[in-house]
């Protein structure tokens, strides 16, 4: 059944000391606006407005929350607070910064920094399959600095994907949208559907979710790196559990990228969470090791490839 989408607040609408410029994105739990503060600085404002529990029709400002859903709505608000609390404590150049938090229109708002840039998703789409190894290593190593900070606050991101990795104008990455982080706190609240993105969610995201851990975010990191090379998301983990048809990076891009990078991607994408890097630190360490440029393969014939491998081994 099609779920009715919530209407965004109109452009130019004043909200506390901010004025809404336009809507940036619309999700199942929230709407994000671009707005201008009193000092003229641009900010992103996230409005808590779960689609299934609160409804704002066209032209309205106050959402309609039925008495039946009020309990669940308030519960979700608690989770929104958790996200705010977690982010407020995180002050890291690679993690989105929360600037303010306020209550209005019977719901709550989180104000975050906004900078010009684009998401990694947009970057991938633009550079379809032509992303250099240096770029990938550079972006992911710095992004992992942010993720390390997140994990060190006992928080999991749980919805890591290229569209949640924002690139500033100078290509420094920023982790955004911690909306799924709530899931660590509420696994048995069926009212709020678990959030995950097929292709980037780890196998632990599906099912009972009791095995979720840093390794689950690491799976998503692997999937995001895979997407950088492939130009699209890898096969979804639940599908892979049934029938794994994901071509390992090692085979798909053999020779085009360093063996080490491809190895790392496959390592992260292991279906068994115990076989993945167990911490961001371990993964980062592997990523910053000396880069060995790919050796140009003169003969594409499969037999010669094996011969080359043996030659390499002899060295």
């Amino acid at each position: 059944m099609a779920q009715q989408a919530n209407q965004a607040l109109p452009n130019g609408h004043p909200l506390e000391e901010y004025v809404i410029d336009r809507q940036l994105s619309l999700g199942g739990f929230s709407i994000v606006y671009l707005a201008k503060g009193a000092d003229g600085k641009q900010v992103a404002i996230k409005e808590y407005l779960p689609n299934s529990l609160a409804l704002r029709t066209d032209g309205q400002v106050m959402p309609i929350i039925s008495a039946e859903h009020l309990g669940a709505f308030r519960y979700g608000m608690k989770c929104f607070f958790e996200e705010g609390r977690a982010l407020a404590r995180l002050s890291h150049p690679n993690v989105i910064r929360v600037l303010n938090f306020f209550r209005a229109n019977e719901t709550v708002y989180m104000v975050m920094e906004y900078e010009h840039g684009r998401t990694l998703q947009e970057f991938i789409q633009k550079h379809q399959g032509h992303i250099s190894e240096r770029f990938i290593r550079g972006v992911f190593t710095r992004m992992l600095n942010g993720l390390r900070e997140v994990h060190s606050h006992k928080l999991l991101h749980l919805d890591l994907k290229p569209s949640n990795i924002y690139l500033r104008a100078d290509n420094t990455p920023v982790l955004i949208d911690f909306g799924a982080a709530r899931q660590t706190l509420s696994t048995d609240q069926p009212m709020l559907k678990p959030m995950y993105t097929p292709g980037f969610a780890s196998p632990e995201h599906y099912g009972s979710r009791k095995d979720l851990g840093p390794w689950s975010d690491i799976y998503s990191v692997g999937a995001s790196m895979y997407a950088c090379l492939a130009g699209s998301a890898p096969q979804a983990a639940d599908e892979r559990l049934k029938k794994d048809s994901l071509t390992p990076a090692m085979i798909r891009w053999d020779g085009q990228f360093s063996d080490r990078l491809l190895e790392i991607i496959d390592w992260c994408l292991n279906l068994n969470h115990l076989y993945r890097p167990q911490s961001v630190f371990a993964l980062q360490k592997a990523l910053v090791e000396t880069v060995t440029p790919p050796q140009s393969k003169s003969s594409p014939h499969w037999l010669n490839r094996f011969v080359d491998k043996f030659k390499k081994a002899e060295k």
């Binding site: 608690k78 607070f81 407020a88 404590r89 002050s91 600037l99 303010n100 938090f101 306020f102 209550r103």
Partner: peptide
């Protein structure tokens, strides 16, 4: 709700 918002604001204050 008011208290939670207050708490978050003061944390933001503290860590900015």
């Amino acid at each position: 709700i008011e208290r939670a918002i207050e708490e978050i604001r003061s944390t933001i204050e503290k860590y900015t």
